[in-house]
Amino acid sequence: MKRRSLLCLASAAAVTLALPASGRADPPECEIPPGLLEISLKLPHLAERLRARQPVNIVAIGGASTKGAAAGPPDLAYPHRLQLALAADYPEVPITVVNKGVPRQSTQQMVERFPTDVIAEDPVLVVWEAGISDAVRGIEIDDFAAALQAGIDEVRNRAIDIVLVDMQFSRRTSTVINFEQYLHALHRVGDLNGVYLFPRFEMMRYWSEQNVFNFDEVAEDERARLAAKVYECIGVRLAQAIRAAVQ
């Protein structure tokens, strides 16, 4: 998000000297600027479930980048990577992450399938990746914000925790599509509701600036493998954020 970019610019300078963001051995290419995953919000229902060592069901709802077809089978998409990372963190708790990514859907369309795709799964946490298709379709910001609010209310009224995930970054897409206002709106809605927003955009921008994943220089068939790596990093970092929010 733009409002954060100043912070990131400052921290990017320091990052070469930075320590790994957590004590665990994270894949080196998933390096992120220090402080990016600082999280003060809590996920109380998930925390309670983990403490009681009861089964945890998580629904990841979103668009094409949640479905993850770019990497191949759903096992390589970020929701499954999130499941693996959380399972490693909480070996005594059965954890499943259900992937409800459907490409090309606006936020409003996602909200419409909340009853069947989210609530029916009886999750304790919803990871909601939204905004890409809204920007592509030029949906009015007010309508986008209202749809987000409706979705958040629907989930929270049922005592389910929620985490928002913002857009993917790419230098190339940003020449033809302007995410700025949508990104801004997404962060505002999260802020107003006290909902944690996972900063995927800022994270991927950092990887782009550091030239971590270079899609231009690999062969066509190598791209899926690279996409799987990006999704893995996102899953690992998302697990890290969730871990911090339940402590």
Binding site: G63, A64, S65, A69, A70, P103, R104, I132, S133, V136, M167, Q168, S170, R172, T173, T175, V176, I177, F215, E220, R223, A224, A227, V230
Partner: peptide, 16 residues
């Protein structure tokens, strides 16, 4: 952009 950018991760975005 549409010609040179072939990253499968951005199919939704490139609908623009």
């Amino acid at each position: 952009t549409a010609t040179v950018f072939k990253n499968p991760m951005y199919n939704d975005e490139m609908r623009v």
